[in-house]
């Protein structure tokens, strides 16, 4: 069917409208980062600055506390993602492919946390980690959330749909379960690992409430703590704050752009036959 010119123009106009209104807050954040002190809250209002200044971005990049929290959060997020992938994928494989005594019980045990809201266990989790002496360590950010019912469920769903024949052949050849997991299942898991791995990375990077409870040491401050702290302490330096927010949001946005094919298709992954 050939679309008429008018129809095509309308389609592009609508698409442009969706793109612009969706990205407006982010564009505004980016642009405001380029505005000097006198322009950022200027009346009468002006969308673009008269003079594009790099100073805010340069200044925030020279703030050691900002750099340190970016680097620490990045390292923490990588470790967290790695640990989650290991813990959740081996459990997912066991639940998808092995048969063992008490499987049903352990399945309910591992999957029910999906329905437990964080707030119901926030305070008591804090008590647990403080009794374990984990406060003000990176471990408190990495270990407690690594096991995730949602992610285990998602990976298991994928392993359930993996054809049986190769696994059977390997078993007959005498390969152990670990070997099969390592050499048959892991190489196929790229797509599903990207989707859940990006999920873990984002969860860690964007976390705010758990870090403000468990990290008081300024040397271990996470990036969202830094941004929120900046807003309450130096709330009037909007240009600087917008520049910092832009840089703090950048890794997550880049991640989406890099893995967009996997992620957008990830929504269909579980339905794949």
């Amino acid at each position: 069917m050939k679309a008429s010119l008018g129809r095509r123009v309308a389609t592009y106009a609508l698409a442009a409208l969706i793109v612009i209104s969706t990205t407006l807050p982010l564009a505004w954040m980016l642009i405001s980062g380029f505005k000097g002190r006198s322009e950022v809250l200027r009346t009468p209002f002006q969308f673009f600055p008269d003079v594009w200044l790099w100073q805010n971005y340069a200044a925030i990049l020279q703030d050691p506390a900002f750099l340190q929290s970016m680097a620490l959060t990045f390292a923490g997020a990588l470790l967290f993602t790695l640990l989650s992938l290991v813990v959740n994928s081996i459990a997912a494989y066991a639940f998808a492919r092995l048969d063992f005594r008490g499987k049903r019980f352990w399945w309910v045990y591992c999957i029910t946390p999906m329905f437990i809201p964080g707030m119901a266990i926030l305070l008591t989790s804090y008590v647990v980690v403080s009794n374990l002496g984990m406060l003000n360590t990176l471990a408190v950010l990495i270990i407690p959330g690594a096991a995730s019912a949602v992610q285990m469920f998602f990976i298991r769903q994928f392993y359930l749909n993996t054809p049986l024949a190769i696994e059977e052949a390997a078993l007959i050849d005498g390969a152990g379960r670990w070997r099969i997991f390592w050499s048959i299942f892991l190489p196929q898991s790229q797509g599903v690992f990207v989707v859940v791995g990006v999920g873990s990375f984002l969860a860690y990077w964007n976390a705010y409430v758990w870090p403000i409870l468990t990290i008081q040491d300024p040397g271990l401050q996470q990036i969202m703590q830094y941004i929120a702290g900046f807003r309450s302490e130096r709330g009037n330096e909007w240009g600087l704050l917008m520049a910092g927010s832009t840089l703090a949001a950048l890794p997550t946005i880049l991640l989406v752009l890099i893995f967009q094919r996997y992620i957008v298709n990830g929504v269909r992954l579980a339905g794949m036959k």
């Binding site: 946390p113 999906m114 964080g118 707030m119 989790s125 959330g145 969860a203 976390a207 758990w210």
Partner: peptide, 8 residues
Amino acid sequence: MTMSPQST
């Protein structure tokens, strides 16, 4: 962190 992976 206990809250975020489940919700995010």
